[in-house]
């Protein structure tokens, strides 16, 4: 196969496909910390994030993707967190954000 070089390949869809994603880890995370579901996407965690001001790290986006079953790269992203705790201080829903970070890392990696 691929005897012909067309000069391009079929682009992969970037859609989140809930049918294809394995939500097992996500379900486990939400079972252990159901408060994560109460996130209303206000962004104050990311706004106050020490790491987020220096890197692309966006805690809100990472945990939302994890909840949708998009685990790829989440563990590495969360390594950027400095665990300073400011996000937990500002969260209007009282989510234990540091706890969430440690939980996701535990579930997705060998932390």
């Amino acid at each position: 196969m691929a005897a012909i070089n067309f000069g391009y390949t079929i682009s992969q869809p970037r859609a989140i496909d809930i049918d294809r994603n394995n939500l097992r880890k996500s379900d486990e995370i939400l079972r252990e910390m159901p408060e994560l579901q109460t996130c209303i996407g206000c962004g104050s965690c990311t706004a106050s994030c020490t790491a987020g001001n220096l890197t692309e790290f966006n805690f809100r986006k990472v945990h939302t993707l994890v909840r949708r079953g998009e685990y790829q790269g989440a563990y590495e992203e969360l390594n950027k967190c400095m665990l300073c705790g400011k996000c937990r201080l500002v969260c209007p829903r009282g989510i234990n954000t540091r706890g969430v970070i440690l939980l996701i890392k535990r579930k997705l990696g060998d932390f």
Partner: peptide, 14 residues
């Protein structure tokens, strides 16, 4: 544009 054909074909593929 040849470089863009990857996502042109991706639509038919889908």
């Amino acid at each position: 544009v040849q470089a863009n054909r990857g996502y042109s074909i991706a639509n038919s593929h889908k």
